[in-house]
Design a protein around this nucleic acid. Structure first.
Length: 812
RNA sequence: GCCGGGAUGGUGGAAUCGGUAGACACCAGGGACUUAAAAUCCCUUGUCCGCAAGGGCGUACGGGUUCAAGUCCCGUUCCCGGCACCA
């Protein structure tokens, strides 16, 4: 079998599809809603390294699915674009002086050419690139909508700062205390920032996850990230000061056990309440904490440290005076930055109390068999956070933990000392970056009018040219150095004003790109509402899991804001999400330049062809799991493609296939149809291999068996399938040819294979007519020599007969 | 520590409802064709005992439910990912 000429076939059909605009999607009203599908890939950042073999994995999966849907009569929207603002282009500009737009456009051209060489069925007329002004005009416009709704605000709280990237980072961009991009340890810095109020959507971002067809791990990661916890806020009074000290607790039932309080070192009350004797110690501790990075504070703080302020609070429930300490185990940024400490029932409070000799009072005890509980004598010997029965707790005594929580909240609310509260770990989104290559934030600072948005008719606010891309590192962006850009007039009063010089983070453009695809060149709106109604929501979104709490959270947030503004038709953008697994190197490690295990898709296409690469990546294993690359494995799919090509050289006859071949054909169609629809591509390919091997034995091919195989191959290896389809005498491309159908009756075998077991062990099998009765099956089973041997001299104590499946003799 | 996912031959992986474990491939070995090689085709290929017929064992480990467990239940180990002093 000769190598097949993929290097001629593949460009030929790619040209054909391009010339015929084969994949253009139009809003054709004759397709009912249920016959429309929006299938989306996570668009790539066009890095200088070119396409990675991981990209075509997801792209091939969606492409197969789209081609399958088209052949089944669906109107399919399948676009591609580029997420093109980002640090690599800017860092390259710093080194070389080349404008990031120049390198970015060159990289996009290379990516586009590489993607096209794989024969994906994108509608290229809808391509978007987030760094182009006619795109980011609308990113800026959406930002202004957020601003006007009060969802964007200025803050000067300490933030995560990457000293290497010289920019602030969102919480989502910090992993293990390091910058997600460059791995540098993140420090804390206090600079003026723009924040987006994503916390206002915390509850909806959480609740709406339930209705999404997403992988459970991603939902779980978002749930954890949002981190909802129910509890109560309780107001203590500082003794002798009259200051209120509010805390959040998930265990209001343990309030009687609160024996001290702890403030975060940054808490506003610290300076006010510290006593003269403790002043020096407290200030030293606060200074020390301020110098530590977040990582140092969390990592090194396994041993609890802290200082007494000299002040006391009054526990509202029993009037007791309890000391107020400061410690960095209390985070300024969660809850109120202060806690009531219940050392008997909280591990951290226990450690702290033990370290500083603070009192420990048991208020929850393990109930006995009668459901009642008695407090232990003196201090408890160990800490427990488990539920139990309230003791030493006045009016709560005898109540179970859940009931005690409710009772305490009711009591607090009645006395005006607190209330039931819900807290989230999710923080607002730090949205400004002190870098050049991003969307300018379209705001103006006017000494008279304050912050004023750039009017819509002045958008886009384009990036100015700069002489140096180097970030000053002062907390200003390179834009701050361009005086004639920064100095402007106030859109409201016309007086002198200054532009905001921060830019948006790389995530901004990807928050809404799936909407721009619907209407990519609309000059009057970010998207036309009719287009939204025609296509949205996205029916299938495929991409890596690494964006679980970044892009996928941010874009849900923006989408909900747009939904509340009445601009989109659904509360959620992506109905179904599938994460493709990572493709590892042959050494089972993550592909990286430094390990030298990177596979370049161009090399594979040149040597084996695009169809082989597509097929191989789908044949490696299930889409969702990570799996190692093995170039040797490509020969398997290549042999299959060569066999298919060789079939195309054989005469095709209209005479019917043998009954056996006809059955195999229908079974294969059934299997490939079901597996393609459910994205189980590896087993679909395996089924096609089996049918192709059978056909390869024949001298002439019955059309009724061969044509369905070519059609089924089309989504998987579209170039070769088009070539074979043409050889079959068809004039039209098979892009919209009808997907083969199967006759369920023809998939059934005439006979069943009945397995015979003795005591559950396989001892033989036989063929039986369909619908054979239990008695007949038993008789046939007993007639098998091996079975008879096993049964000889033994009593059959039980007989299990599953018609059509098996006979099992249980003997003694 | 907490949460989520996983563990099947030498390798990647199959296995609808609990009903023939290892489909389809890779690798390896053998054979056919050939002057030879490549390519192709055919055969073998979980493991142990056995010349064979046949039999024992086998889906990370230990239990359990069942006529029957890779699949269900309980416990353990290891691997991967996420979060991590969040009160």
């Amino acid at each position: 079998m000769a190598k097949y000429p993929f290097s001629e076939i593949e460009p030929k059909w790619q040209r054909h599809w391009e010339e015929h605009r084969s994949f253009r999607a139009e809003e054709d009203a004759s397709f009912p809603k249920e016959k429309r599908r929006y299938v989306l890939d996570m668009f790539p950042y066009p890095s200088g390294a070119g396409l990675h073999v991981g990209h075509p994995e997801g792209y091939t999966a969606t492409d197969i699915y789209c081609r399958y849907l088209r052949m089944n009569g669906y109107n399919v929207l399948h676009p591609m674009g580029f997420d093109s603002f980002g640090l690599p282009a800017e860092n390259y500009a710093i080194q070389t002086g080349t404008h990031p737009a120049v390198t970015t456009r060159a990289n996009i051209d290379r990516f586009r050419q590489q993607i096209k060489s794989l024969g994906f069925s994108y509608d290229w007329d809808r391509e978007v690139s987030t760094c182009e002004a006619d795109y980011y005009k609308w990113t800026q416009w959406i930002f202004i909508q957020l601003y006007q709704r009060g969802l964007a605000y200025e803050s000067d709280a300490p933030i995560n700062w990457c000293p290497s990237c010289k920019t602030g980072l969102a919480n989502e961009e910090v992993k293990d205390g390091e910058c997600d991009r460059c791995g540098t340890k993140v420090t804390r810095k206090r600079i003026r920032q723009w924040m987006l109020r994503i916390t206002a959507y915390a509850d909806r971002l959480l609740e709406d996850l339930d209705g999404l067809d997403w992988p459970e791990p991603v939902k779980q990661m978002q749930r954890n990230w949002i981190g909802r916890s129910e509890g109560a806020s309780v107001v203590f009074t500082v003794d002798g000061h009259g200051d209120a000290l509010e805390v959040f607790t998930t265990r209001p039932d343990t309030l009687f056990g609160a024996t001290y309080m702890v403030l975060a070192p940054e808490h506003a009350l610290v300076a006010r309440i510290t006593s003269a004797e403790q002043k020096a110690a407290v200030e030293a501790y606060v200074d020390g904490a301020a110098k530590k990075s977040d990582l140092e504070r969390t990592d090194l703080a396994k041993d609890k440290t802290g200082v007494f302020t000299g002040a006391y609070a009054i526990n509202p429930v029993n009037g007791k005076k309890i000391p107020i300490w400061i410690s960095d185990y209390v985070l300024a940024s969660y809850g109120t930055g202060a806690i009531m400490a219940v050392p008997a029932h909280d591990e951290r409070d226990w450690d702290f109390a033990k370290a500083f000799g603070l009192p420990i009072v048991e208020v929850v005890a393990k109930p006995g068999p009668d459901g009642k509980a008695a407090p232990c004598a003196g201090e408890p010997s160990e800490c427990t956070a488990a539920d139990g029965v309230a003791v030493n707790s006045g009016f709560l005594d005898g109540l179970g933990t859940e009931a005690a929580k409710k009772a305490m909240i009711a009591w607090l609310e009645e006395k005006g000392l607190g209330k039931g509260t819900i807290n989230y770990k999710l923080r607002d989104w730090l949205f400004s970056r002190q870098r050049y290559w991003g969307e300018p934030i379209p705001l103006v600072h006017c000494p008279k009018c304050g912050v004023v948005p750039v009017p819509e008719d002045q958008l886009p606010l384009t990036l100015p040219e700069v002489s140096s891309y180097e970030p000053p590192g002062t907390g200003e962006s390179p834009l701050a150095k361009i005086d004639d850009w920064v100095d402007t007039t106030c859109p409201t009063c016309g007086g002198p004003a200054r532009r905001e010089t921060n830019t948006m983070p790389q995530w901004a453009g990807s928050c809404w790109y799936y909407l721009r695809y619907l209407d990519p060149s609309n000059p009057g709106a970010f998207v036309g509402r009719d287009k939204v109604d025609y296509w949205m929501p996205v029916d299938l979104y495929v991409g890596g899991v690494e964006h679980a709490v970044l892009h996928l959270l941010y874009s849900r947030f923006w989408h909900k804001v747009l939904f509340d503004l009445g601009l989109v038709n659904t509360a959620e953008p992506f109905q179904r999400l599938v994460n493709q697994g990572m493709i590892l190197g042959e050494d089972n490690q993550k592909m990286s330049k430094s390990r030298g295990n990177v596979i370049n898709p161009d090399d594979i296409v040149r040597e084996y062809g695009a169809d082989a690469l597509r097929l191989y990546e789908m044949f490696m294993g299930p889409l969702e799991v990570s799996k190692p690359w093995m170039t040797a494995g490509l020969v398997g799919v290549t042999r299959f493609l060569e066999r298919m090509y060789a079939l195309g050289e054989k005469p095709v006859v209209d005479a019917g296939p043998s009954a056996e071949l006809l059955k195999l054909t229908h079974k294969t169609v059934r299997k490939v149809d079901a597996d393609t629809a459910s994205l189980n591509f590896n087993t679909a390919i395996s089924a096609m291999m089996v049918l192709s091997s059978e056909l390869a034995r024949l001298d002439s091919l019955p059309r009724a068996a061969y044509e369905p195989l070519v059609l089924m191959l089309a989504p998987y290896a579209p170039h070769l399938a088009e070539e074979l389809w043409e050889k079959l005498g068809h004039r039209e491309s098979l892009v919209r040819a009808a997907w083969p159908s199967y006759d369920p009756a023809l998939c059934e075998d005439d006979e069943d294979t009945i397995v015979v077991q003795v005591n559950g062990k396989l001892r033989g099998d036989f063929k039986a007519a369909k619908g054979a009765g239990k008695d007949a099956l038993e008789a046939s089973a007993k007639a098998l020599a091996k079975v008879a041997e096993q049964l000889a001299g033994k009593d059959v104590v039980k007989l299990v007969v599953v018609p059509g499946k098996l006979v099992n003799f249980v003997v003694r």
